[in-house]
Nucleic acid binder design. Sequence first.
DNA 1: GTTCATGCAAATCGTTTGCACAATG
DNA 2: CATTGTGCAAACGATTTGCATGAAC
Lengths: 133, 133
Amino acid sequence: MMGKPKYKRSRQRERILHLLRGTDIHPTAVWIYDQLKQEFQDLSMGTVYRNLNILVELGLVAKIACGSTFDRFDGNVEPHYHFFCEKCGSVLDLPLEVDESLNRKVEELTNFMVRGHTMEFLGLCDKCSSRQQ
Amino acid sequence: MMGKPKYKRSRQRERILHLLRGTDIHPTAVWIYDQLKQEFQDLSMGTVYRNLNILVELGLVAKIACGSTFDRFDGNVEPHYHFFCEKCGSVLDLPLEVDESLNRKVEELTNFMVRGHTMEFLGLCDKCSSRQQ
DNA sequence: GTTCATGCAAATCGTTTGCACAATG
DNA sequence: CATTGTGCAAACGATTTGCATGAAC
């Protein structure tokens, strides 16, 4: 008893995944809650977080620690790099190709077993940099 | 009135900076608190956090968002990449040289103004990978 | 009918803040 | 003495969890 649970379907979870796959803004849990609140009038944040964690566990969604006090979530689980705008706080995908060879390079330089890497660029996005001074 | 404060010396802040410069374990606030608790018997977490934030603001210390629920701090503010061990949770510095040219590359591919980037490798550290199965 | 999901509210945890008093310059 | 730093305790905000009920299979 008490093995790994075999998740059942849930309308809420399916809608959360669909929402995440349909946007590239790397939403927060609150954003997802606000979107679905209209559809499920008595949705709770507990349900949103529980399902987000399950989706991450299943490898269908990625959690992004963007240096803020809150997390963001990404429906695109293919490796890619991010850009964080230090002015407006937006998180954007970059068209820079992922360099998987870096993983082997680090393994050669260390005794670590490398599974992958993330890279985040910081600065001002197009909108914020054109509005500067 | 109420301009940017001109910070005065404080024994606590100096010791925190000294501690961070003397270790490469990328400590948490609690670790720093525990170290200094012996020296300042009635030290409080508030003081630790306030000083860490000041040191970060002054550019003397870097805050590391390591995907956990808590932050880590780094007395080494020279650009360098990190490795996060997914088993023991340790954060380690990598001898991989920082590729500053990536910043310009991203600027060429986008309309963003890039100030810098961070990169984190994930996997098992030497101790944890040798202990595996 | 057994297991998993939900909403609700309370709990948790890392961090921040208001306040009265001590230290700095 | 004007300003910043401290300890304390309370507040905060994002996330998690216990519980009774509802949905999935």
